[in-house]
Nucleic acid binder design. Sequence first.
DNA 1: CAACTCTACCCTAACGTTAGAGTAGGGATC
DNA 2: GATCCCTACTCTAACGTTAGGGTAGAGTTG
Lengths: 157, 157
Amino acid sequence: MDDNGGNDTRGGGARGTVATTARHMQIGEVATRTELSLRTIRHYEETGLVTPSARSQGGFRLYTEGDVARLMVIRRMKPLGFTLDQMRDLLDATDRLDGGAALDADEREALLGRVRTYQEAAAEQVEKLRIQLARAEDFADTLRARLPRDAPATRTA
Amino acid sequence: MDDNGGNDTRGGGARGTVATTARHMQIGEVATRTELSLRTIRHYEETGLVTPSARSQGGFRLYTEGDVARLMVIRRMKPLGFTLDQMRDLLDATDRLDGGAALDADEREALLGRVRTYQEAAAEQVEKLRIQLARAEDFADTLRARLPRDAPATRTA
DNA sequence: CAACTCTACCCTAACGTTAGAGTAGGGATC
DNA sequence: GATCCCTACTCTAACGTTAGGGTAGAGTTG
């Protein structure tokens, strides 16, 4: 047993949990703050979604507030059902739009196009989620209807 | 290229698509009717969720209306995020409750307990879906806000 | 030293995706 | 009217993918 100990989101250790305002955080603190697992955060790095801004001499990942913000964005994107590749693509686009790197008209237009595409996909996904929710509610009700009026567990009748 | 040809839900061929009221359907018709892929339907059989009521001499799966109904139930369950194993478990329970097989009190109580458990899980899932939907809407709006007011594609400003 | 982190690797669920072979049944042929 | 053929449909088997979970064994940090 090591690492996350098998749980989901870190329990809040002793050391790294303090420096909420520090310049660098280790992965554990990031995990608690983002409610993502260590494995997930590392996986996001493997797939090029979020790369820690630095590494310690010994190789520990060191994250900044900006990194955490990016992770939070990803967390909000997840329910939209995009793949990690798509998220990376979208994040790259917005990053380049925001980063004041003076892009020429064509490039800017291309980037905006990408964002627009994702926006439309997002809107569609929202619709699907609505339908899913409706179906889920429906099914939950159906299930409840099958039960003899919330009777307690023991005692037959 | 054979089978489904790489698409998702079948396009509606020539032969099997006619006999909507026949006693047996082959997998293709079932797929169109349930909007599930051939692979998915076969997979459900592999995992013991829905077994076709019969097979043709040549080995084709033959489904009845009842089978289709069961598949539709599963389709409604999917958004609740249950695993296939859980669905099988739940379906077995309701099947045995419904099948007029005169079960004794203990057994009946046990089955109802299972259903109750799933009902609670379903209710929880509905809550999660609500939250997801909210987040998704939020994010979609955020994305839309980043776009220069739905401008057409070309022309920079 | 204790708590934390590292890489590397194997595992899972729920299908997707070929590949290669067989089947259902109607039409053309003899 | 039996045979062949053709095409649409289906079969099994098996590997691929996605988004991580879990574990091992070793190293790092405070």
